[in-house]
Nucleic acid binder design. Structure first.
Length: 218
DNA sequence: ATATCGATTATCT
DNA sequence: GATAATCGATATG
């Protein structure tokens, strides 16, 4: 376990301002690495470090949900920056994005993997793993569906939530941690626009969802 | 270790 | 009616 990371998470966590998200998805994605996702539910707090994200570029990105235009499902993407876009996929899983750019211009960052720091027992319960095995810590929040489940994120509960406001109960913050060893790879799990390097990872972090990269587009 | 497959439903064509 | 920004189980080397 990363002692340095754990200590940092126990210090003050400051929310990121809306201006942080009012930029290109590439820029936001890169700078989100090393920040933390926080869930406050009454007395309980969950904190996890962001170790893997993907940028989705908006209406002209064939792999982005925004490519379909503004629909009831994805309308958060076309709203102001810093809000949660949560979608349901494969009849089983929720995935979390944060909106970027500005009102009227879509663009987002998908959260793909986190490193659990605080509230690990609760994350394990939410994932249906009664006794968290330290060796399998990464299974709690490694993958977009898993991290959403660990944080209790659903579309009904969280779509449209303001991720810049601690009062919203789900927010993104910065502590004293500094991201190192940032790597760029193609995006994972998509069938369109698979060659562009838009996936950002903290290389070497055990919670990154996988090391192998998708097959090149043909 | 990697490969393949079934689950299960909101959304769009 | 087909698809999907996934996961966990099972099969096989």
């Amino acid at each position: 376990m990363n002692k340095q990371a754990s200590e940092a998470s126990l210090s003050a966590i400051r929310p990121l301002p809306r201006t942080f998200f009012a930029r290109s998805p590439r820029r936001v994605a890169r700078e989100l690495l090393g920040k933390v996702l926080v869930r406050d539910c009454g007395k309980l707090r969950l904190v996890a470090r962001i170790v893997e994200v993907e940028a989705y570029l908006g209406e002209n990105d064939p792999a982005a949900h925004a490519a379909a235009g503004n629909t009831p499902r994805n309308s958060v993407l076309f709203g102001p920056p810093g809000y949660a876009y949560v979608y349901f996929i494969y009849g089983n899983h929720y995935c979390l994005n944060v909106s970027c750019e500005r009102e009227g211009k879509a663009g987002s960052v998908l959260f793909r993997a986190l490193e659990p720091l605080l509230g690990i027992e609760q994350m394990a319960r939410s994932r249906g793993i009664p006794v968290p095995d330290p060796r399998h810590l990464s299974r709690l929040t490694s993958g977009p569906g898993r991290l959403a489940q660990a944080f209790g994120i659903t579309r009904a509960r969280d779509n449209g939530r303001d991720l810049t406001s601690p009062a919203s109960g789900l927010w993104i913050g910065a502590d004293t941690f500094r991201a190192m060893n940032i790597q760029l790879t193609p995006r994972i799990g998509i069938t369109k626009a698979t060659t562009q390097p838009l996936r950002f990872i903290l290389a070497g972090n055990p919670c990154v969802s996988r090391t192998k990269v998708p097959h090149p587009q043909r």
